[in-house]
Design a protein around this nucleic acid. Sequence first.
DNA 1: CGGCCAATTGAGTAGCTTCAAACTTCGTGG
DNA 2: CCACGAAGTTTGAAGCTACTCAATTGGCCG
Lengths: 268, 268
Amino acid sequence: MTTAFAQPQNRAKTIPPPALRTSYNALKSHAKLWSTASEISELLNLPIAIQRQTDQVVFQHVHFKSGQRIHSLNQEFVNIYLVNSGFIKSIFLDEFGNEQVCHFQMKGDLLGIDGMHTGRHMSEAVALSDCDVIVIPLLKLKVCSCTFEHFERAILHIFSRQLVAQQNRLNILASKNAEARVSIFLQSLAQRFHLLGYSQTSFNLRMTRHEMGSYLGLTLETVSRTLSLLNDAGIISVQLRRIVILDAEGLKELTLTHRDIQRCMVKV
Amino acid sequence: MTTAFAQPQNRAKTIPPPALRTSYNALKSHAKLWSTASEISELLNLPIAIQRQTDQVVFQHVHFKSGQRIHSLNQEFVNIYLVNSGFIKSIFLDEFGNEQVCHFQMKGDLLGIDGMHTGRHMSEAVALSDCDVIVIPLLKLKVCSCTFEHFERAILHIFSRQLVAQQNRLNILASKNAEARVSIFLQSLAQRFHLLGYSQTSFNLRMTRHEMGSYLGLTLETVSRTLSLLNDAGIISVQLRRIVILDAEGLKELTLTHRDIQRCMVKV
DNA sequence: CGGCCAATTGAGTAGCTTCAAACTTCGTGG
DNA sequence: CCACGAAGTTTGAAGCTACTCAATTGGCCG
């Protein structure tokens, strides 16, 4: 039985901001405290499994309340975090402390790998709902190298996956208009909810218009306007954070910019 | 003595497009054919060195002429590539075959890691000048696991570094205007040339305005106009692809958008 | 020289941002 | 319980940035 790694200090250290988000703790019931490497592998949806012989090692789960920080800027890199339930944003702070949303993580997504290279986290992660997070003490794992080796290989795949995903986002920011960006975002959310077994046509956004805008490279007003537009067009129904996708096909069509269509015509 | 991995078929297979770029083969003279893992580690500028005992393994260098493909879309993922000399663009092709430039690679940069996750390359890499590229057959390395293990650890760091770099680009595309984007781009190029021992104030661009625009999320006209603007302001001198940075401080100041300054003021 | 491609420059416009105001929701404290 | 304030959202009007379309110039190569 290999040792387990306690990480309780993180939980209480960061005080949540006064604003308490709309909590949605549907998942809070099946609270687990420990996960094996196999379970983690499954959660990560990896092509190669982290091998079973490492299942003596178990990883601690930590709960975060809405608004709490999972890790913060310049914090020493010790752990990576795997979301088991809840919704998290990771943000990048520029020279002036303006936040730029990097990603929204949910079940099965990994956090905090940005700290590996420099040894310090380059970003912050903040819970947008109550969360259950598996703490993987990557550096300490080096000690029992048999486990680490498998983990490294797994993480390599995840990195590759994330790099491709980032690439995709770059392309979107570089070439799509507001309508396309928002509809791609909604579709992506819908798909992610679907994969987790939730409705893909009806869901609650967990982020503000501002956070959405930051993620999509738009202002909050443009996001709001675009949502209203899709609403008026009958493609979706928007009621504050409640989204219902009424016309999935129509939404898909919007991902093509005027520009895309023209370029397509030229080729044909 | 472990085996070395030949990879000659790549060289001749892809025919270069008719347009032959302005070649600038200053580095062509010290043509090497093989590199050890230590040499590679140094080239990659890694915090942890790939260990010396792996130096029995050597890696083949392959030459590419300007316009040739290093790897192409959907090609099976076998190798990753480390640039030893020359200038390369990696591009992403969208649904219509429009290219979106992901990155410009030069000495010490890695190519092709995007293929790891799916087993096929998600992007293409095209030489913008004559290049010398070290071929690292990542998958075959798994056989002699002692080497692979060290490599994996090294590559993990590189991935982390690249993810942070991508994050940065995302922030730029999401929040900076044309002026800021172009000046950040020029500064980044200047610094990279500097690190390689070249002049950081005077260099040749190896890419077209279109490619620059694609990378920066701008049209070629906007790039051209912005360069002319910086030229007229006396901050740089532009003569087609020849760039001279006249006022590095002035260039740095341009990286702050009107928007940034306002937000900064509000905070103070 | 002519053809081709890259780059520059201009004019007009679409789309997003900015600024501003009104409204809703939610939590807090009287 | 209601009033209040803070934060989030919506919507309008005006302005500006970057895009589109178009014409021209300059290099390069056959």
